[in-house]
């Protein structure tokens, strides 16, 4: 068992009387390939938003690599190595593909405050951006503005942008959302090939992809952890099949 990277203790989020995330205690080890599944409204995106800092927690703790990040703002979490991508593509449409990946590299290297240094001389960061783009197979599109990129490629760019922070844990919120299933398998091949130094927690609805790429699965139901186990344990569990997979899981 690898050492623990992320640990949540009794994490909850209330919207009024609704407990969207209710008492969630999970641990994610270094180098993990975890899937977070559950029916619509189970609280998956809410949980990821709480982990990334986009939403504050009502109660509970988040410890990441030994540091308490429960109330840290998003950019501090990124600096600690906790990055995410978004279910709905969220990029910088007016910058070019390479420029926005380079931007994330600048920030990671602590160069974002350099306000008088010409960035076009910072070749190391631009080269790293190009390498990341090659990794997600976007090398040929590096100089295009993001606005005109096909949606599937924007999804890949989301991942490159997340990776540019060189995260120890990357949270992927439905990375394949909105692209044809033939392409989503390709996209997951790219994700699967990411270095083991990056742990991954992904939300995904396509059970074939989940069972193929996750080493462990966390099932969320009504904001609570319903079950946690290996793909075979989850697939073999009668109540998960009934509650979740039975409800059109293989779509």
């Amino acid at each position: 068992m690898s050492p623990t990277l992320l640990e949540t203790k009794r994490l909850s989020k209330c919207f009024g009387v609704l407990r969207a995330v209710d008492d969630v205690s999970i641990t994610i080890p270094e180098g993990a390939r975890y899937a977070l599944i559950g029916p619509n409204g189970a609280g998956k995106t809410t949980l990821v938003s709480m982990l990334s800092g986009a939403l504050s927690s009502t109660s509970g703790d988040i410890t990441f690599a030994g540091v308490d990040l429960t109330s840290a703002p998003m950019h501090i979490r990124v600096r600690h190595g906790l990055a995410r991508t978004y279910q709905i593509t969220s990029l910088f449409p007016r910058l070019t593909v390479r420029e926005q990946v380079a931007l994330a590299v600048f920030e990671r290297d602590g160069m974002g405050w350099k306000w008088l240094a010409p960035r076009n001389r910072m070749t190391a960061q631009y080269e790293e951006a190009s390498c990341l783009l090659d990794l997600v197979k976007l090398g040929a599109d590096a100089d295009l503005p993001v606005g005109g990129l096909p949606y599937g490629k924007q999804r890949l760019l989301e991942i490159a942008l997340g990776l540019a922070a060189r995260p120890r844990l990357l949270l992927l919120d439905e990375p394949a959302a909105g692209i044809p299933s033939t392409q989503s398998a390709e996209l997951f091949e790219v994700i699967d090939a990411l270095p083991a130094s990056t742990a991954i927690l992904f939300i995904e609805h396509d059970m074939d992809l989940v069972f193929r790429f996750a080493k462990k699965i966390i099932v969320l139901m009504n904001g609570q952890v319903f079950m946690e186990g290996t793909p075979s344990e989850i697939a073999g569990n009668a109540s998960v099949r009934q509650i979740y997979l039975g409800e059109g899981g293989h779509d």
Binding site: P73, V78, L91, A165
Partner: peptide, 22 residues
């Protein structure tokens, strides 16, 4: 033309995502 200036453009275009890349 600095990295700082680029980060301003990123904030202008998408402040939430800007925070999300640090």
């Amino acid at each position: 033309k600095s990295p700082f200036g680029l980060s301003l453009e990123a904030i202008r275009d998408n402040p939430l995502r800007a925070a999300g890349i640090g």
